[in-house]
Amino acid sequence: MLASQRKQQILAQLAQDKMVHSAALSVQFNVSEDSIRRDLRELAAAGLLQRVHGGALPVSAAIAPFETRKNVQSQAKKSIAQKAVKLIQPGQVVIVDGGTTTTEMIAQLPRDLPFTLVTHSPGIAVGLIDFPLIEVILLGGVLFKHSVVTTGSAMTETASKINADLFFMGVTGVHPAAGFTTGNFEEAGVKRLLSQRASETIVMASEEKLNAASAFAIGDLSLASTLIVDSELDARLQDALSHQGVAVIF
């Protein structure tokens, strides 16, 4: 079998099983693990999968630039956002992550809902100028332009003094083995910190993020109390979420 044919079969198996293991592929194709690792390395370089220790996972499509991501699954994000705003109660302190789904979420907020919103996204903050009952706290720092959020020591020091009721966390991948992931090392650390500052963490995930992974782990699925989705979950992901005590809102 040609290497190109083997790669196509690896991708097909990955799409079906949501995970492949190098050792098992080596036996299946009767080639060395070095050959399989080379295949996976080349497929990863082409952006077709995410390599992990011992194998590979489906790569998340949600790591494109912000402007590109705004047009991905836009209707699904709107549906998810409508469910998310119903979880916010008057008087709460709510941390809102940056991202295209949270940008859609603030557009769905009712004008008569008084609460305090904390964010490290300048875009989220500016989007709430015309909401007189929402107090907005913007966490400053170094601007990470890819996601249009602030990072760095100034941002994390201020965030560490917040005690919030809810944190709406953006992710690029939700996978039963890899947990919640994102495409930037600094952002992963910021998301972990913000999750620690809230009583409950809520993740909103459109279909392209499910059973997919990016390079940097935020945490296990147990990091979230609730996952909001707009499509049915396969049995493996549903079981993993249930085992970790994560409620799912469809």
Rank of each mutant, 00 (worst) to 15 (best):
Leu2Ser: 14
Ala3Thr: 15
Ala3Pro: 13
Ser4Asn: 08
Gln5Tyr: 04
Arg6Asn: 03
Gln8Val: 11
Gln9Ile: 13
Gln9Ala: 14
Gln9Tyr: 11
Gln9Met: 05
Ile10Lys: 01
Leu11Ala: 09
Gln13Asn: 07
Leu14Arg: 12
Asp17Asn: 12
Lys18Trp: 10
Met19Glu: 00
Ser22Tyr: 04
Ala23Ile: 13
Ala24His: 12
Leu25Lys: 03
Ser26Ile: 04
Phe29Asn: 00
Phe29Leu: 11
Asn30Cys: 06
Val31Trp: 09
Val31Arg: 09
Val31Gly: 03
Glu33Met: 06
Asp34Tyr: 02
Asp34Ser: 13
Ser35Val: 04
Arg37Gly: 12
Leu40Trp: 00
Leu40Gln: 10
Leu40Thr: 10
Glu42Leu: 07
Ala44Lys: 07
Ala44Leu: 06
Ala44Arg: 07
Gln50Asp: 01
Gly54Asp: 07
Ser60Arg: 12
Ser60Lys: 14
Ala61Val: 06
Phe66Thr: 03
Gln75Val: 13
Lys78Leu: 10
Ile80Ser: 09
Ala81Pro: 09
Ala84Lys: 03
Val85Phe: 13
Leu87Ile: 11
Leu87Cys: 14
Ile88Arg: 08
Ile88Glu: 09
Gly91Asp: 02
Gln92Trp: 09
Val93Asn: 04
Val94Asp: 00
Thr101Phe: 01
Thr101Gly: 05
Thr102Gln: 10
Thr102Lys: 05
Thr103Ser: 14
Gln108Ile: 07
Pro110Trp: 12
Arg111Val: 14
Leu113Ser: 10
Leu113His: 10
Thr116Tyr: 04
His120Val: 10
His120Trp: 11
His120Ala: 15
Ser121Pro: 08
Ser121Ala: 14
Ala125Ile: 03
Val126Pro: 00
Gly127Cys: 06
Gly127Asp: 05
Ile129Arg: 14
Pro132Arg: 06
Val136Phe: 07
Val136Asn: 04
Ile137Tyr: 13
Leu139Gln: 09
Gly141His: 10
Gly141Lys: 11
Val142Tyr: 07
Leu143Met: 14
Ser147Met: 15
Val149Cys: 06
Thr151Trp: 04
Thr156Val: 08
Thr158Asp: 07
Thr158Phe: 05
Ala159Glu: 04
Ser160Leu: 04
Ala164Arg: 06
Asp165Lys: 04
Asp165Tyr: 03
Asp165Arg: 01
Phe168Ile: 02
Met169Trp: 00
Val171Trp: 11
Thr172Trp: 11
Ala177Leu: 13
Phe180His: 15
Phe180Gly: 08
Glu186Asp: 15
Glu187Val: 13
Glu187Ile: 13
Ala188Gly: 06
Gly189Trp: 07
Arg192Cys: 01
Leu194Gln: 14
Ser195Tyr: 05
Gln196Asn: 07
Gln196Trp: 02
Glu200His: 09
Glu200Pro: 00
Thr201Ile: 00
Ser206Glu: 15
Ser206Lys: 06
Glu207Pro: 12
Glu208Leu: 00
Ala212Arg: 09
Ala215His: 10
Phe216Thr: 05
Ala217Thr: 04
Ile218Cys: 01
Ile218Asp: 01
Ile218Gln: 07
Leu221Glu: 02
Ala224Gly: 03
Ala224Arg: 02
Ala224Ile: 10
Ser225Glu: 02
Leu227Gly: 01
Asp230Val: 06
Asp230Ser: 14
Ser231Asn: 12
Glu232Trp: 02
Arg236Ser: 10
Leu237Met: 12
Leu237Ser: 13
Ala240Phe: 10
His243Met: 13
Gly245Ser: 14
Ile249Trp: 04
Ile249Val: 15
Phe250Gln: 15
Phe250Asp: 11
